[in-house]
Design a protein around this nucleic acid. Sequence first.
DNA 1: CGAGCCCTTGAAACTCGTCAATGATCGTGG
DNA 2: CCACGATCATTGACGAGTTTCAAGGGCTCG
Lengths: 241, 241
Amino acid sequence: MTSRLLCRLERHTPLSAEERHALDLAATNTVRRFNARDTLLKQGAPADRIFIVLDGLACRYKLLADGRRQISEFMLPGDLCDIRTFTVPRMDHAIAALSPVDVAVLSMEAVQRLTAMPGLARALARNSILHQSILREWLTNIGKRTAFERIAHLLCEISERLRIVGLMSGDTCDLPITQSDLGDVLALSSVHVNRMLMELRRSGLATFHNRRLVIHDPAALRRVAGFDPDYLHLDSLSAAA
Amino acid sequence: MTSRLLCRLERHTPLSAEERHALDLAATNTVRRFNARDTLLKQGAPADRIFIVLDGLACRYKLLADGRRQISEFMLPGDLCDIRTFTVPRMDHAIAALSPVDVAVLSMEAVQRLTAMPGLARALARNSILHQSILREWLTNIGKRTAFERIAHLLCEISERLRIVGLMSGDTCDLPITQSDLGDVLALSSVHVNRMLMELRRSGLATFHNRRLVIHDPAALRRVAGFDPDYLHLDSLSAAA
DNA sequence: CGAGCCCTTGAAACTCGTCAATGATCGTGG
DNA sequence: CCACGATCATTGACGAGTTTCAAGGGCTCG
């Protein structure tokens, strides 16, 4: 159940057999399935649980008073929430499923048991930093890149993140989201997302069709996106104290 | 030296005299002054130190290859960096001074000594979560709000954050940044920032002139901004386990 | 008193959003 | 198995918001 999570965590921090086992136990204990568009945790609700995404796609988002929605994080298989959300009383954003998802639900007590183990504590801290780093890159993406660059950049990121957990077959993957979802991530209208996807297709860089992404020319896609994967900290087992 | 930091931390987590003292010691130990535009930590540099801003204004930013700059965080007096940056080998963004700043520089060892104390560990975790929460709000701000709303929202946020550390006199404060800096925060051109500031002034909501911000009508400013301060977790000493 | 940076304003161009209509795809039930 | 409805993708025309370019004016500091 936790193989994808382990792919992610053990990339930087080796875990003991005991730690792996504890994680596996926690993740198989309370698995829940949600349908696409289901809300996992409402904005304003008590922040009393966190999730591990086992399969499918979820997201964090904020809603403005008039219904405008901004997605601030993709939660891909193997991703887990920041364990420090427990230090805050209530959610200032929501978590929802973009496709059908299987998630493990962890209580504060479960997390405390896990973080008592030093290797896991390190791995989870590192996980949180990664997501913060991605968030900063998204801000830059939306703030400073053109619509075309933005989409290209997001597709580069997604493919790298999915590759880590073994969900890329060469340069193609399933991506069970709509163009409107992409728009809410990239701060673009769904119409304009469509136009840019068409241009990506015409220029032979990538095709996103029927919930399936094919990257035809990864190098060129990275180039037009200005994609520098540093922020994903992909380097395995780097030296860090 | 650390009174503003203590304002921030003790808002949610009471600290023992010993903890306060340890913090004060750490912060007075290695104080450095930087000029406006100085770089405190370069993108790509080892992430081997963190900062407490004692006075002045700093920021985190990312630079694209062609020079476009996106500021992703304001570091106001009393703010301190996420302690988990040590889990990552190198900086994926830069830290620079926007105005002359006094900062305390903390090594990993110094931080480890501090986080050995449970109250401080809690307070620092909570601090990190707050900044992540602000980052998410900024993403929403840039992604989903109009230029006018965006500026109004940022001014609301800044005034609330400065108020906590005692740097608001009624509804006015010093804000030693340029309109071009504001543009790099808000993902707007400096020209358009200027136009929106003019409109804010004309409509009697707020005036930003000569590095000085005056909010004439806080309620109206919040209204046009759609500002909901929940994400700043201002509520003192809320119940959180 | 001058130099440099910052602010201010206008005009023109462009990117992207909105509106609207058509077509494709998928799941559901007759 | 096909028909239907709903959701999603696609395309065009038009308009709004924002950027860029350019020039002038003001403030501040040496």
